[in-house]
Amino acid sequence: ARLLHGSIFAKVIEGLRELVNEATWECSGNGITLQAMDSSHVALVSLVMRSEGFESYRCDRNMSLGISLVSMSKVLKTMGKDDSLTIRVNDDSDSIIIAMESQNQDKFADYELRLMDLDSEHLGIPDTDYSCAIKMPSSEFSRICRDMSIMGDSVLICTTKEGVKFSAKGDLGQGSIRLVQTTNIEKEEEAVIIEMKEAVALTFAVRYLSMFCKAAPLSPQVGLSLSEDTPLMCEFKIAEMGHVRFYLAPKIED
């Protein structure tokens, strides 16, 4: 699999590696997918990178590759910001080869990462017709998570037809941020757009939302989908290629 802009792959890895340290990458002719839960089984991440999004891609037979995201992240930190990246696995090998090429083709770096033997439990994610779908700038969502984490470790997300309200309370007191739906949409990327079938009010652990925001560099916008008593879906699109979707179980009344 070859990417002209290796930085896209680095952003994917940086977006995942805090939530999951290692994961099984499923490679097929259609592309690369990954599904993994965090260690406490509170959150799940689903990654899709379609083959047509790569500059070149070939997969002669399906492979499940156990990869340490922490190690992969360390290797990708050596990549130049404009480098292209090629990832390859030879048929019967127990390692993955990461090749980086500088833009002006004068520097070639090659790394080999040992593959891991991971037992991957796969969960079925049902298609959900969410009560509420919010689109907002990913930087704005990152900021809100950071600000709310000052006040408490849980954030209540309430949606109404006017907008969406995030609130947190703790020992210091409480705080809330209300975003109004954007009316005059000049730049789609900066708009707050709320599609609401019915109002929802759900509580989530803010530290997971903050971990999801590590994937914000992938996309200027984030999608948040909510329904009562249903995991939140937090989606960052990967341009022309796929998406990273995080699912977080809500905190529920005893």
Partner: peptide, 14 residues
């Protein structure tokens, strides 16, 4: 008081 639910209780094991 609210308790954190597990994600696996919402998704089906394959």
């Amino acid at each position: 008081k609210k308790t954190q639910a597990a994600i696996s209780s919402f998704f089906t094991k394959k």
